[in-house]
Amino acid sequence: MSLTVLMNAGPWLSVPPPGYGGIENVVATLVPELRKLGVRVVLASVETSTLPVDERIWVFPDGQFHALQRPYNQVCGVSQAHLDGVVRALRARDDIDLVHDHVEAVGLATMAAMGPDGPPVLHTLHWDLAKHPELYGNLDGGVRVRVNGVSASQLARAPRALREHSVGHVHLSTPLAVDADRRPRVEKGDHTVILGRINPGKGQDLGARLARQVGFPLVLAGPVGPYHRPADLAAAGDEARQNPDVRFFYDHVAPYVDGDLVRWVGTVAGRERDDLLAGARAALFPLRWEEPGGTAVVEALSLGTPVVAVARGCLPELIEPGRTGLLTTDEEELGDLVLAAGLLDPDECRRTAAARFTPAVMAERYVGLYEQVRRLAPRPLLPTPT
């Protein structure tokens, strides 16, 4: 395949990221499989990104995620500076067949504003589409700019103007799904895991309360705001409470964290994360929002761990009740379902992951969308005259 794609991952974290980084992990999973299919990838990220690609574009030397804690008027130019670098690169060359953009809001707006002489664009929507109603409700990307979701349920809730630009959805994947059906069984412990950034939408307060109420061991694994380890949060003192996720943790989660039945271990990655998930009785998702993608869901299944969740967002698309997990619309039932999850077959979880959620499956789907977007917008990029 002769296709050059500019993959715009944004300026916030390196690719792959050092630990938690949802969008950056998606890009790091997708790109190697695209290159196996013959796609040439130009990565727009930060200089410290280490993902093997064919070419790199950057404005910032390091990830700028830390800047998000500063006041808006000090940080509002970060995304714009990165996008300005991307646009300058696009206008200076004629070899980019398509831009695959992952930068929330400003990426879509900038690509649409390039006008009819810009390249075809596929903008992936990784987030809650109830945000940015003025942008999404009035989007006009012409025939050149298209979007895709990461689940059907996410797109079903999108404003009409955004849906009219959609070319469908692609479920997220994980490298853990590769040959997951051949992975030997891991001895299960009695703990349950909630994996992900601690915030109100993820519902860690509900999970912690139910763990204390029902009596099952619970491990909370994920950062609180910018703090990846309990020691880092403790050292930050009262100033850390300026961050809303930190306030949520202290006010609503920490009262249940006793270091015994309920533990917060901070960010886990790599082998540590895999061992924690693989040995768990269940992965718990006590959601209070419409989860759009569910990376942690497919990771859990790949490691043979059933999912127990509130049936919101993409969860009903990813989970087969009674086979790979248990879903409910009543959050108070989650505690009893955690206990029942031990009856589900870990092998069934792994078989499902190997069939549905490998990076190769995701990449093949994206290549199909690239071709569709290019057919809809055949006009090539015109380089700036010199």
Results as ranks from 00 to 15, higher is better:
249 F>I: 02
252 H>N: 09
235 A>F: 06
234 A>F: 05
291 E>W: 00
270 G>D: 15
252 H>V: 03
303 L>V: 09
316 P>H: 12
253 V>W: 02
298 V>G: 07
242 Q>V: 05
313 G>V: 14
239 E>D: 06
237 G>R: 15
304 G>W: 15
249 F>N: 01
301 L>F: 13
301 L>E: 09
287 L>K: 10
280 A>E: 15
261 L>Y: 11
258 D>T: 11
243 N>Y: 02
295 T>E: 04
256 Y>T: 06
240 A>S: 14
283 A>I: 00
307 V>M: 08
281 R>S: 07
318 L>Q: 14
238 D>P: 08
305 T>L: 12
316 P>N: 13
300 A>E: 14
295 T>L: 13
270 G>L: 08
237 G>C: 07
293 G>P: 08
230 P>N: 12
274 D>G: 00
256 Y>F: 12
301 L>N: 07
288 R>W: 13
272 E>M: 09
270 G>M: 13
298 V>T: 05
295 T>N: 11
275 D>E: 15
299 E>I: 03
234 A>S: 08
304 G>I: 05
290 E>S: 10
249 F>V: 08
269 A>K: 10
260 D>P: 06
299 E>D: 09
316 P>E: 12
299 E>C: 12
295 T>A: 04
233 L>V: 03
277 L>A: 04
260 D>Q: 11
251 D>C: 11
278 A>F: 13
311 A>P: 15
232 D>P: 03
253 V>P: 01
318 L>S: 05
305 T>Q: 12
247 R>N: 03
266 G>E: 07
242 Q>E: 09
232 D>T: 02
303 L>W: 11
285 F>Q: 04
267 T>H: 10
293 G>Y: 06
269 A>R: 10
252 H>E: 01
237 G>T: 11
281 R>G: 03
276 L>V: 06
282 A>Q: 10
312 R>H: 15
261 L>I: 14
263 R>D: 06
288 R>P: 06
249 F>E: 00
265 V>C: 11
252 H>A: 06
286 P>I: 10
280 A>H: 08
262 V>T: 12
247 R>M: 03
264 W>P: 01
277 L>G: 02
291 E>D: 08
231 A>D: 05
236 A>G: 14
247 R>T: 00
294 G>K: 01
308 V>N: 06
236 A>M: 10
311 A>I: 12
318 L>H: 04
274 D>M: 04
232 D>E: 13
270 G>S: 10
283 A>N: 14
277 L>W: 14
237 G>I: 09
279 G>S: 15
254 A>R: 15
298 V>W: 04
286 P>S: 02
236 A>V: 02
